[in-house]
Simulated assay, not measured.
Amino acid sequence: MSSHIRPASLTPKDMDDLLGGRRMRRNRRTDWSRRLVRENQLTVDDLIWPLFVVAGTGVREAVPSMPGVERVSVDEAVRDAEKAARLGIPTIAVFPNTDPDLRDPIGSEALNENNLVCSACRAIKQEGLNIGLMTDVALDPYTSHGHDGVMEGDAILNDETVVQLANQAVLQAHAGADIIGPSDMMDGRIAAIRQTLDENGFRDQQIMSYSAKYASAFYGPFRDAVGTNATLIGDKRTYQMDPANTDEAIREAELDIHEGADMIMVKPGMPYLDIVRRLKDTFSVPTFAYQVSGEFAMIEAAGANGWIDKDRAMLESLMAFKRAGADGILTYFAPKVAELFQRGA
Rank of each mutant, 00 (worst) to 15 (best):
P105I: 07
L315E: 09
E252G: 06
N130L: 03
K213Q: 01
T228Q: 08
L273I: 03
K236I: 05
I257D: 08
Y239K: 10
N27Y: 08
K125A: 03
E82P: 06
E109S: 11
A81P: 09
A261K: 07
G21N: 12
D178I: 01
M263E: 03
F333D: 11
A155S: 15
L255R: 15
E199Y: 00
T246I: 10
Q195P: 04
G153H: 04
M151F: 10
E127H: 12
Q172L: 10
N167W: 13
E199S: 15
T161V: 06
T43R: 11
S317E: 01
L19W: 08
G56S: 09
R86E: 15
N245F: 12
F52E: 05
I250E: 14
D154E: 15
S183E: 07
I131M: 11
F52R: 10
L232M: 14
T228W: 04
A301I: 08
D198R: 10
E254I: 05
G149C: 12
F222C: 04
R203L: 14
L315H: 14
V53P: 11
I308K: 07
L18W: 08
P64T: 13
A289V: 00
A173L: 08
A304R: 14
V170C: 04
L129V: 08
F218S: 12
I275S: 03
K310E: 14
L10M: 06
P243I: 08
A338L: 00
Q342D: 15
A313G: 12
V72H: 02
L315A: 01
V69P: 11
S183G: 06
G132R: 13
S3T: 15
Y219T: 04
P90T: 05
L111I: 05
R122A: 11
P243K: 06
E82G: 09
R26K: 15
V226W: 00
V137D: 03
Q205E: 10
Y290S: 02
A338N: 00
R29E: 11
T135N: 04
A313T: 15
V226S: 07
E113T: 11
A326T: 03
G149M: 09
L157I: 13
L255H: 10
V94M: 00
S284V: 02
D256H: 06
K267F: 11
A304F: 10
G325H: 05
V117L: 12
L42E: 02
G344W: 06
V162T: 01
T331H: 04
A120G: 00
V63A: 08
L232D: 00
P100K: 09
M314L: 12
G201K: 06
A177V: 08
R194E: 03
E295N: 07
A297L: 02
G269R: 02
D235F: 10
Q205K: 15
G227I: 00
F202I: 03
T30A: 11
Q164V: 06
Q168F: 03
A110K: 05
L36S: 15
A138R: 06
A302H: 07
G188E: 11
I156R: 08
M186I: 03
N114G: 07
A175E: 05
S9N: 15
G153M: 04
Q240L: 11
N40R: 12
Q195Y: 01
D154M: 09
A81R: 10
A326Y: 00
